[in-house]
Design a protein around this nucleic acid. Structure first.
Lengths: 341, 341
DNA sequence: ATACTAAATGAAAACGTTTGCATAACTATT
DNA sequence: AATAGTTATGCAAACGTTTTCATTTAGTAT
């Protein structure tokens, strides 16, 4: 078996009887080379098994053909729709994605960004707006095309595509109060270094306060972004305190865990307790009961974010940030109902 | 704001009063440069805002610092644990991951592999063993360090880390028959170009046949890997035919959807019907009812796969494939019980 | 036929590193 | 004190492309 790790553009050129320059052109400016020579080059390429070297291309200071993505975790459903949509769209335009996870740690994020820049990514996509000063500074200094996905923010320093999490929180709180609930618990993850969760929570609390509803401390639950932790937290709540008639959860995963908790304690959702999520993950519609939640349109966000990033990469680097607001919408489903009197 | 996109190793060298070679060495062989000079270089680096150029490094034919991962989809929970574990482990060793999705299309996979090789990834990780001849051939010709994750296969052409899916299928079938079930339905996705699903299904069917149980065609359900499709399929089954006492699903996502279907039709799982999954996804333990399934240890697989790949990258390229078999194990939980007579 | 333009290709410099070899400055050995 | 060995650094070639500029060839207008 012949092992050819090192056939280069010169070998191809020789085989095709042209100069390396022409081979290069046939890749990058095919219109500038005669159809017939192009054919000969193609043939030489497949005969030699040549695979072009993007590193050597990138070194020219031109295109590396990669974009970087920094995401808190790949471990759960939260970002998967978003990433998939973003990835597919970038791929369509010939980009390959360098993916890294920061585990919700902003210092780590900075290191990862540096590492991505070492690889000369042409652009970077981040989640949310909580990033360290160092990160923002580096992006600015190197003038990196960048887009923040997931939540919209007026006056954001960088381009962004997403829904308003505060609005999402307020909307779901509105839904719950309109169903007559007043004994309401909320369940959110740690909101430090996580503006998505923070904004949602603020939206919920502020709306409820406005309606004269105050959440007592023991109904203010802190949980991880996992079904199991959410379930445990909810069980503790249901077992130890008189229970609320509704729980507003920070996202669908948490809501799911809490529904399981209720069911495992013999409660019927929504007859005994209403539970809501935020985010509308793909399985939320088909679960039982289906989850009342707020649609954040991850596919749309991912796709549009890709477009924004492409535009920044190809276009004017000094332009003001592009901000696209994706509408949010309450999807009332089976996990909530009018309160019984 | 000063925009410095182009400070290079020479600028750093000048600033630090050394030669470029020394700067380079301080990155790659720090032991070969005097502590005091190293300090001066570090200072020059932070003063200039230098970020090294991996493309220029990769062009030396040496390390690119990247590995490629080709995965069918990022869109659901199936691979997320695995990917996360793999990713974290590679990162620890200084690698950044280039991730691409092939949407379960093997031709696409070949194109993606080429694209990864253009970026001169040092190694590649794939899912399963169903790959096109072209793919296998290219890997062989270019002598690419490669590992297949997710399922073990004796005599595989390439290194692999995973459980035996056939065994997993047989084990769960054994569990169900030992609970006394004979009226059993199975629910699997399209097994073409998907050896994981195929092996599992074969394991199930063969075991049942051995026990004299034949699955009638209308209990042989074909579904997508999604909660919603699984739920719809199960509803069709439950509404239109006399229903089985147990359903063996191809994975936990499908099982989950089918449980929802049963619940939405007023059936109790497991009292009225037992339902099993395969894979033990992170939420399967905490759902209600928790799902009886087969553990495939995705974290262990991801981590070990990373080790195998690293070893191939750093070690002997001509060595025979490394094959690591990760044990599978039935986790009996709430979604199954002894049949009532 | 001649001069002029356009299109296709080639030659060579450039991109930012790494590394083998050479050199210089020390240290240890006799 | 002379020699051999060691260590830290610099010099310059090399890595595989892309691109500018120059050249050749073919085509067009006179």
């Amino acid at each position: 078996m012949k092992k050819n790790t090192n056939v280069d553009i010169i070998d191809v050129a020789i085989k095709a009887g042209v100069s390396p320059a022409t081979v290069s052109r046939s890749f990058n400016h095919p219109d500038k080379v005669l159809m017939s020579t192009r054919k000969r080059i193609e043939k030489a390429i497949s005969q030699t098994g040549y695979i072009r070297n993007r590193a050597a291309q990138a070194i020219q200071g031109k295109r590396s053909g990669t974009v970087g993505l920094i995401v808190p975790t790949l471990d759960n459903a939260i970002f998967s729709n978003l990433i998939q949509a973003f990835s597919v769209e970038m791929r369509k335009h010939g980009f390959t994605m360098l993916v890294t996870t920061n585990g919700y740690d902003l210092n780590d994020e900075y290191t990862l960004l540096r590492s991505l820049l070492e690889h000369r990514v042409e652009g970077v996509a981040l989640i949310g707006h909580d990033h360290s000063d160092e990160t923002y500074n580096l992006l600015d200094i190197r003038n990196v095309p960048v887009v923040s996905m997931w939540n919209y923010k007026e006056n954001s320093k960088i381009s962004c595509v997403g829904g308003e999490n505060k609005e999402a929180g307020a909307e779901i709180a509105k839904h719950i109060t309109e169903l007559g609930h007043t004994k309401i618990a909320v369940a959110f993850p740690n909101v430090k270094e996580n503006d998505r969760a923070r904004d949602r929570k603020i939206g919920v609390i502020e709306y409820l306060n406005k309606k004269g509803i105050i959440i007592p401390e023991y109904w203010n639950i802190k949980t991880e972004y996992s079904v199991s932790d959410a379930r445990n937290c909810a069980i503790k709540l249901l077992d130890n305190y008189n229970h609320p008639t509704a729980i507003i959860a920070g996202n669908d995963v948490i809501a799911r865990g809490m529904i399981y908790a209720a069911q495992s304690r013999g409660l019927n959702v929504p007859n005994d307790i209403s539970i809501t999520g935020i985010g509308d993950f793909s399985s939320s519609e088909s679960s039982f009961p289906s989850i009342t939640t707020v649609r954040m349109r991850p596919n749309e966000v991912g796709k549009k974010a890709a477009s924004v990033l492409l535009e920044r990469i190809n276009g004017d680097r000094e332009a003001d940030p592009t901000r696209i607001r994706v509408s949010v919408e309450v999807k009332a489903r089976e996990s909530t109902k009018l309160i019984n009197n």
